[in-house]
Design a protein around this nucleic acid. Sequence first.
DNA 1: AGAGTGACGTTCGAATTTGAACAACATGGA
DNA 2: TCCATGTTGTTCAAATTCGAACGTCACTCT
Lengths: 184, 184
Amino acid sequence: MGHTRWLNDEEKRAWTAFTTAHALLYRRIEQRAKRKFGLSGLQYEILARLSDAPNRELRMAELAGALVNSKSGLTYQIGQMEKAGLVRRRSCPSDDRAVFAVLTDEGMALLERAAPDHVELVRELLFDVLTPDQVRALADGLGEVSRRMAAGPGGTRAAADRTAGSGAGAGAGAGAEVTADLGT
Amino acid sequence: MGHTRWLNDEEKRAWTAFTTAHALLYRRIEQRAKRKFGLSGLQYEILARLSDAPNRELRMAELAGALVNSKSGLTYQIGQMEKAGLVRRRSCPSDDRAVFAVLTDEGMALLERAAPDHVELVRELLFDVLTPDQVRALADGLGEVSRRMAAGPGGTRAAADRTAGSGAGAGAGAGAEVTADLGT
DNA sequence: AGAGTGACGTTCGAATTTGAACAACATGGA
DNA sequence: TCCATGTTGTTCAAATTCGAACGTCACTCT
């Protein structure tokens, strides 16, 4: 516990750029999705996560972990989306505690309409601006950051798996269906 | 309006890494700050932004822009912090509409106690994991992303200035006082 | 079998955030 | 001077988020 290791100028730039870019980006994406499709940012992510999950369903805890959101928060949102018919709940036969959130056809249809808009915006605002090297740095660097945080305290194991894209798993669900690409 | 330019695998990795890392990081930072100092994430940022602003004060709109937050949200938080004695309001003599949020000595003292913890966490979770090249990529790439978004629609001009760290301005306030480094 | 431990999803109240509407003011030109 | 336009900060109701407490259940060890 020596003195604090303060950030140098470049680290400061990196930190503000990181937080500011995220805030700005997320704000735009959310506004667009809400205006054009009535979806909040979180709701879009839920649809996307479910769409490329095996069987288009995920357990609540897994979903909460992947989205880095509280359990209670997810319960609320799934409730809203269930009212809207985008998702339905299915209790797990093998484990009475578990509940699956299942993407309905209606939810899938909405996602398919919303996804092009979403992806186009992300590309335009982020990837069209970054160089290939910078994209790789993001993927590698922040990927590692996520993995470590998810592994350590406070993190949820699910978040790590999502990020890791580890080994054979990554390619498994990708490519077979249109579904696979709607995530991002 | 051609087909959607979907994301390739590396872009997908980058996107999830970006959002996940931010969510995980912010969550930890907020929990720590709240537990040890009773500060929410936004409140810490407010203190930090004010601390290295000329005169330790900023107009509400500027602050809201820099933090990428809504005006009403800032009004609320400044209200809370004013109750806590961390900040006070000062009306602008030259413009009756404008209101300055001013950092009090008490607020400054709290920031000085909280900053080491904050910075240490950011360093440990982020910068200790990234390579120097990756740090530069973050600063440059996401800096440019922020700048463009702030300039375009929906963005606030203040956010751009924050990010730009342009030219001589960056060094101006840095180094002279302890104050300058508490931001990040 | 039975107790202990931990995971799961929900509920609840409090805190926060959001967006639109608003009143007061500044600024520019007719 | 006076009006039109755009800003600034606040208010309000509704929506969302958070954390802790709960009830239910699975799993393990004895």
